[in-house]
């Protein structure tokens, strides 16, 4: 079995397994096939972790695999890894370029406002990195993270992994959005799952040569913001349809199946019919 097949198989398994134990399943799969570790960690979205930046007045930031190096996570506020890495590790650890760091700072500020407007709480973080090794290229990739929820397991995690590829004056934005919803109301009922969709959009961005870098950054932020705004609203409606409509289908299915049972008494059948008529 090739690594690709194993990779696909692992993804299929993770899709079908209990989403509440996603981390355990990933861990087990990596233990089973260590060569898949890098791919699984980068492709499988797990609930986001919140950490505090000690060098930014304990400001919270979100942690995922994209801002991780070894066991530390980079803070978007201080651009440092916490817990602090060794000097050697820091030299090897990834950091965005100056230009991209400026865009990252701007993106963090702007999406923090977005988070405040839409989520009315929670935490947001944006991490960017270069797609190519060449710093001069305008192509970049990044992740926009939002997390809103109380200290219990109830939470909304949205992960937008974006790629911006310039083709002349236009930039193609490909955004892969994953929403992890977890609702746990004690022992009565738990509802959790994730939904991933990929959207691609090409928008005009003036080249950096003709305009200032700041204007380019603002253009990128505006484009990304509008796309993410649309995607999130769509994802929300999709979640409603997926989660709640699916549960409704299950509910109706169970009721219809009971109505078809021959062993059921006629009284119960009449009651069900009355219930259907009332609907």
């Amino acid at each position: 079995m090739s690594t690709e097949q194993a990779y696909d198989a692992a993804l299929d398994l993770l899709r079908r397994l209990d989403p509440r134990k996603l981390k355990e399943h990933v861990q087990n799969l990596i233990q089973l096939e260590p060569s898949l570790a890098e791919d699984l960690l980068s492709s499988v979205d797990t609930p986001l972790i919140v950490k505090r930046d000690p060098k930014a007045s304990q400001r919270e930031y979100l942690c995922c695999d994209y801002n991780r190096d070894i066991d530390s996570h980079r803070s978007p506020w201080s651009n440092e890894y916490f817990p602090e890495l060794s000097a050697e590790d820091v030299q090897e650890s990834p950091f965005p370029s100056k230009n991209l760091r400026q865009l990252e700072i701007l993106a963090n500020d702007s999406f923090d406002i977005y988070r405040d407007l839409y989520y009315e709480g929670g935490v947001s973080s944006v991490y960017l990195w270069e797609l190519d090794d060449e710093e001069l290229s305008d192509d970049f990739a990044g992740v926009v993270l939002f997390k809103n929820g109380d200290k219990t397991s109830n939470a909304w995690d949205s992960i937008h992994v974006l790629e911006a590829v310039r083709e002349g004056t236009d930039v193609t934005y490909r955004i892969t959005t994953t929403v992890i919803l977890h609702l746990d109301n004690g022992k009565q009922m738990t509802l959790s799952g994730n939904l991933s969709r990929q959207t691609e959009k090409t928008l005009a961005v003036p080249p950096s040569s003709s305009t200032s870098v700041e204007q380019v950054h603002v253009a990128h932020i505006t484009n990304l913001g509008t796309i993410i705004e649309d995607v999130e609203s769509q994802m929300r409606t999709m979640l409603e349809s997926v989660y709640f409509e699916k549960t409704r289908d299950i509910f109706h299915h169970t009721r219809n199946s009971t109505s078809g049972n021959e062993e059921m008494s006629s009284d119960v059948h009449q009651e069900l019919m009355k219930g259907l008529q009332s609907l």
Binding site: D8, E38, I70, W129, V143, Q198
Partner: peptide, 19 residues
């Protein structure tokens, strides 16, 4: 899986212990 084709992030080292 849409996540399979998305950007895999910068080059980074694996964690010492997986979650």
């Amino acid at each position: 899986h849409p996540n399979k084709t998305r950007a895999k992030g910068p080059r980074r080292k694996l964690p010492r212990r997986i979650v």
